[in-house]
Design a protein around this nucleic acid. Structure first.
Lengths: 209, 209
DNA sequence: GCCAGCCGGTGACCACTGTCACCAGGCTAA
DNA sequence: TTAGCCTGGTGACAGTGGTCACCGGCTGGC
């Protein structure tokens, strides 16, 4: 069953009508609940997702230790899928839904064609590469130059901004995972941030001031 | 004076004849000696370089501390220039010639057109984005997971590979700059690597075993 | 010959962070 | 109720790396 064109158009207004029709024919819409792994390390890619609604988080991992690289928001796509899909190489990262999400799945072979045919697609992926490049640059700078308190605080601010929430229901363990550190370290640093008045730990979660 | 088409073609064999002619008309060839800054932080870009011969190194910097991100080799281009040039935003990184280099300079407005017009240009920049993305990912993993000895050794191996030399004429201070650490730390770690038999410090430079 | 400057080398010190061990409170399932 | 589990919280400790002070050797300029 082809997808509803008006539905796709709503999320991707820049795409021309012919492209929307092609997407309607070959693409697939998928609703994914929160906390589902949508891309594994080492996996070969056959479809490339574009996030229409929700939020997807992207990680790197080495031996039990992980690090959050960036979020994929609405109307954004996953560069690693794109790159892996077109060059037929395995993924170096893995991705989870952070919130329940609506994904548009595009088959790699068609997308390869569309990139050449439709400037809007071409531009989308250039923009995405560029965005991720600068985000990775920020991550590198943060890793190299910032102490844990700054990194943790930035992380909370960013998360709060992405979600539009002042109170984040996060476990210390979970934060530790996303920052590539240990739970005790998060506890310690959270205490310090609280004393400095930057955050407040409530039973419901962490309030950012 | 237009550039010699045969000369350009030699370095960029994938480009079609019409494109080579356009490049010949609007591009500029520039020989740059070793150790020259070719891209500053905060600088706005009017031309995008493609390295034809030589080697260019790309850095990030924050308050006196620097970190080598990657090298741009022959037939490769600078993604940050490309991105900054097309979106007219300032550069977040800076770049030096590591060896004397021959650069092909392309004006941003023309390149913008060529990307849409010639698939070969389009693909080149997608490839470059992809390459830099994975290199940044390696850098992040190295920063997060490796100790200084591993980072330093990887750095030496990579440098040796890029240059095709077993003996690298490097100062400790210079290495420290490229790894974002202090000179004393390099001295310390070099000593350890030497004791482990991985490298040897000679008067002419550092020999990689 | 003498001095300045750069280079590697070293010891002392300290801040940060990762790790281990352990505890108390709260919640849940048996 | 009890046992188990997850959570945050702590103290002790060690390893890493950044900083400071200072050295001796070498070199190039005067």
């Amino acid at each position: 069953m082809p997808l509803a064109i008006t539905e796709i158009k709503k999320h991707l207004p820049g795409f021309p009508p012919e492209l929307l029709e092609e997407i309607s024919e070959h693409g697939m819409m998928k609703e994914v609940p929160e906390g589902v792994e949508i891309l594994k390390e080492g996996q070969y890619i056959k479809v490339i997702p574009i996030v229409l609604e929700g939020l997807v988080k992207v990680f790197t991992r080495m031996e039990e230790k992980e690090l959050l690289l960036y979020y994929i928001g609405p109307a954004q796509s996953c560069i690693m899928s794109f790159s892996s899909g077109l060059s037929n190489s395995p993924s170096r990262i893995f991705a989870f839904t952070e919130d329940a999400s609506l994904l548009l799945l595009l088959p790699t072979d068609k997308l390869n064609k569309w990139v050449k045919q439709y400037p809007a697609v071409n531009e989308l992926f250039f923009q995405q590469y560029n965005l991720r490049y600068t985000e990775m640059l920020d991550t590198i700078n943060s890793l190299l130059f910032d102490k844990m308190d700054q990194r943790l605080y930035n992380y909370l601010l960013e998360k709060s901004r992405m979600k539009g929430e002042k109170i984040l229901p996060l476990r210390h363990k979970q934060i530790a995972g996303e920052l590539g550190t240990a739970r005790e370290v998060v506890t310690r640093v959270m205490k310090r941030l609280e004393q400095e008045g930057k955050v407040k730990q409530l039973p419901e979660g962490i309030q950012i001031n």
